[in-house]
Design a protein around this nucleic acid. Structure first.
Lengths: 127, 127
DNA sequence: GCGCCTTTTTACAAAGTTTTTACAAGTCCG
DNA sequence: CGGACTTGTAAAAACTTTGTAAAAAGGCGC
């Protein structure tokens, strides 16, 4: 049941509009706290920690829910929707749908042309 | 198990409405003494000494009751309720429920939204 | 033991969160 | 375009956690 972030030491994520503090499990959007439920937080944290990388649905379902590939559920979509709602105007900038694969979090004002890091796997958290 | 505050030297907590004297184990609400039972005092003192920080249920149950995670009880909720009752009109301002996690004491007139102190641990008294 | 006070449990209500359901809308590819 | 498949969305259902009142249990001095 526990959060994925039990012992997360990563420095907070920050960009022009969003702060995500992995210690406090707290998010600020334009300096206003936004309250995330545990699953919302887990999902966002996972995406943010792999900003710029595509994360397949399967990987999200496994890492956040512990679900294996055999489980059919729409809960990921619903959570993505709620996250987008809470991210307000920036939602579409931040959370990108990669059709047929998964989702990707993009930092605000990401370099206009994302430079693929050739030393990293094509997909984060490959399944 | 005895009070947690046997030898507490901390200076009293004070804000606009509440004083909590850890030496005397005495509380004043708008200058009127309020009588707290031992457990009520222990619980409030622990929360107040970590004002602004979320304290997980588990930590409260451990520190005030000595209970380990395996014990299932509602006594914490009941004590929180009685504390809130005694804090009267300010109860909701002071004792915040963090759903699914625990409680947090907020000083009166705290900035409406607590600014995360990135040098502090995520949760007080981590469990 | 008895009375009084405190603490814990119990049982249920209320509030909050997550998942499912059902269908709409979008995407891919022939 | 049309069909198969994927994702978006709203609402309901299922589930979990917290709030509350009242009863039961525990402690302590007399």
């Amino acid at each position: 049941m526990g959060s994925l972030q039990e012992e997360n030491n990563m420095p907070p994520y920050r960009d022009e509009h969003l702060v995500l503090d992995f210690r406090e499990q707290l998010a600020l959007l334009d300096s206003q706290p936004i309250t995330l439920t545990r699953k919302e937080y887990d999902l966002l944290a996972l995406l943010v920690q792999h900003a710029g990388e595509i994360i397949p649905r399967e990987a999200l379902l496994l890492r956040v829910w512990g679900y294996g590939a055999e489980i059919r559920t729409r809960t990921l979509d619903v959570h993505i929707r709620r996250l987008r709602k809470k991210l307000g105007a920036y939602a579409d900038q931040y959370i990108e749908t990669i059709f047929g694969i998964g989702y990707r979090f993009q930092p605000f004002h990401a370099p206009r042309f994302f430079q693929p890091n050739l030393n990293k796997p094509a997909f984060a958290l490959g399944v």
